[in-house]
Each structure stands twice: as structure tokens, then as C-alpha cells.
């Protein structure tokens, strides 16, 4: 295992062996690191071309190749390494035919197209605390890549969607998509899962699921909170324990068969369920539209802070499970 360094301001030998001699570009790190290596990165890099991870992969035996953003002192504290595409080139970061790579604490902005483009025939990539914003198309895409895992990642103010994945088994944990010009989370392949994620104020919907699974998420302030897309698979879409609020057209648009929802909380949606086809509903609560399924018995479960739209539940009934009383921390920045 080799520890390597990237710093665009480094003035030494630029061979990646220390902060003083750090590589000047992330591309150099991507081209040289091999399985088991850790590449620490600090600063802001203004790029003239996409950073392309198309050379080396991690392995099961050797471990991930880890790229980790650091603060100015070189410490890992959540500070992101920034790729500034300066409105000049297509994608910010892309990768093709590489696998088992770990990106932690990275941000990409001002790419003409997608911020982080998880390319074809890649698998097993992990993204932690990565952000993509002000990009001309998507923030993050997984085009035919398999088994990507995103943890506490953030996409906002992108000109098309936030996250979109065409590859199976993409997992989003505690991620946030807000203020994008199309859909926040587009799950376009089977067996994709969003857990504890937040979609807020995206123009054309927050979550779009194709046999996707949505657990304890928040969908707030868009047109349709959660859309389930009709598909030919027998794999159901699930939405469980989620908070669906302030959506101007509907909370759910249920186009898939089958679709299972339960223990969700609805508030201030123009309608809570639309286009119900084969639809299995476990007790839900909230809402006032008489024709909808939320008028089943109030279970006392789900998110219940009706006056608070900042997603902090602030619920004090000790009889309710602790998890439901825990405020949701939003990675807004």
C-alpha cells in the first residue's frame, strides 16, 4: 500500500510522495494509484478536461483505491477537494471499466454536462460526502455501472437531474438532492435503494423509482414527491416510513405494479396518491383527500411534526420509537 498526495499548489517534485511533492492534478493520482493505495487530496483544481479514472482498479484482494479530500492542513475533516470545471468542459469526473474505487470528500461544479459520471462497465465504486452542483446536466450519473454506493452525497442546482442511475444495485444512503431542474433521484434500473435520503424542491419530482426501494426518506416541495415507474419486472417498488410533504401535484404517482407503501406521513400535498394500480398499502397517515388510502386509521406512526417543514421531527411522544423522534440532519452544503 502506498500513500500518495494531490495538491494543485504543490511546488516540489510532483511525484505524489508527500504534500510538498504532491501531484498537481487528480488525474495524476488516478493514473498512478493501484489497489490498496490511499491518495490524499487538498485544495481546488481548475480543470481543462475531464478527470478520467480509466486505468487502475481496486481489487478484492488488494482493497479499494481510496481518494480522500483533506483540509488545507492535510487533515481529513470533511473538507472537500474541489474540481472546478469553469464552464469549460463536458463531465467533471468520469470512469469507465474500473472498479472498487473510493471517493471521499470531493466536490465538482460548473461542468457543462455531468459533475460525476459513473461510466459504463464500472462496478463497486463508493462515494462518501461527495457533492456536485451548478452542472449543466446531472450532478451524478451511474450509466450502466453496477453496485455503486453513495453515502451522504449532495447534488444541487444542476440543470437537469440530481442523481440518476441506469445500473443495478445502486445504493443511496443519507444523500440529498435539492433545487435541481428536473428529478432529484432517478432510479432507472432494478434493485436500487434510497435510505434516509432527502429530495427537496427539484423542478420535476424528487424521487422516480423503477422497482426501487425507498425507506425513511423525505420528499418535499416539488410537483410529484415520489413516482414509481411501470416496469415488466415482478420486483415491487417499496416506499416505507417516509415523509411526503408540500408537493403541488401529488405525493405518490403510482404507475408501477406492484407497489407497496406503508407507514408514510403525508402533509400538504395537492393529492396524496394518484394513478393507483395494484397497490398494497400499510397504514399511513396525514392528508385530507377523502378518496385516498391515507384515510385509513391513524397509526400514530410516521413523521408527525406537522408544523415543522425543516424536516426536523421534533416529536416528543416517548411511546414512539426513538428513530422516529430523531431529527434528520440535512447535508445542505
Amino acid at each position: 500500500m502506498t500513500t500518495r498526495y494531490v495538491d494543485p499548489s504543490a511546488s516540489g517534485d510532483n511525484d505524489g510522495t508527500s504534500w510538498i511533492n504532491a501531484y498537481e492534478t487528480l488525474q495524476q493520482g488516478a493514473d498512478n494509484a493501484v489497489a490498496g493505495d490511499i491518495v490524499y487530496c487538498r485544495g481546488t483544481e481548475t480543470t481543462a478536461a475531464v478527470v478520467d479514472f480509466d486505468t487502475n482498479s481496486g481489487t478484492n484482494a488488494g482493497g479499494f483505491i481510496k481518494f480522500i479530500g483533506c483540509n488545507a492542513a492535510g487533515n481529513v475533516d470533511g473538507t472537500r477537494y474541489i474540481i472546478d470545471c469553469n464552464s469549460g468542459h463536458w463531465n467533471g469526473i468520469t470512469h469507465t471499466n474500473t472498479s472498487t474505487v473510493w471517493l471521499e470528500n470531493f466536490a465538482v461544479y460548473r461542468s457543462a454536462h455531468t459533475g460525476i459520471a459513473n461510466g459504463g462497465d464500472s462496478y463497486g465504486w463508493v462515494f462518501i460526502n461527495c457533492a456536485a452542483y451548478n452542472c449543466g446536466e446531472y450532478g451524478w450519473t451511474g450509466s450502466w455501472s453496477l453496485s455503486s454506493t453513495l453515502i451522504r452525497c449532495l447534488v444541487y442546482s444542476n440543470s437537469w437531474g440530481g442523481f440518476a442511475s441506469f445500473g443495478a444495485n445502486t445504493r443511496w444512503y443519507f444523500c440529498c438532492a435539492r433545487d435541481n431542474s428536473d428529478v432529484g433521484f432517478s432510479s432507472l434500473a432494478t434493485s436500487q435503494t434510497v435510505i434516509g435520503c432527502i429530495g427537496h424542491n427539484n423542478t420535476n419530482g424528487n424521487f422516480s423509482l423503477t422497482s426501487g426501494h425507498c425507506f425513511q426518506c423525505v420528499s418535499d416541495g416539488t410537483s410529484i414527491g415520489i413516482t414509481t415507474i411501470a416496469n415488466t419486472s415482478l420486483s415491487a417498488s417499496f416506499v416505507l416510513g417516509s415523509r411526503i410533504t408540500n408537493n403541488s401535484t401529488a405525493g405518490f404517482n403510482c404507475n408501477s405494479e406492484p407497489f407497496v407503501s406503508g407507514w408514510c406521513y403525508f402533509e400538504d400535498n395537492a393529492d396524496n396518491h394518484t394513478n393507483d394500480t395494484i397497490h398494497y398499502v400499510i397504514n399511513e397517515e396525514g392528508g385530507t383527500t377523502a378518496s385516498n388510502k391515507e384515510d385509513q386509521a391513524d397509526t400514530g406512526e410516521g413523521y408527525v411534526d406537522k408544523g415543522n417543514h425543516d424536516f426536523s421531527t421534533d416529536y416528543t411522544d416517548a411511546t414512539d420509537p426513538t428513530l422516529r423522534r430523531t431529527a434528520i440532519t440535512i447535508p445542505w452544503t
Partner: peptide, 20 residues
């Protein structure tokens, strides 16, 4: 800001925005 397809007033200062 994301200024994709935007034209802003000519005397504006633009700092760290997408301008495509």
C-alpha cells in the same frame, strides 16, 4: 449560481457560476 442559458445584465459581476 447556475446561469445555464441565462443572460444577466451587462454590468453584472459573475463569480463562480456556470455560464454555458
Amino acid at each position: 449560481c447556475n446561469l445555464l442559458n441565462c443572460d444577466v445584465p451587462a454590468d453584472s459581476i459573475i463569480d463562480s457560476c456556470l455560464r454555458s
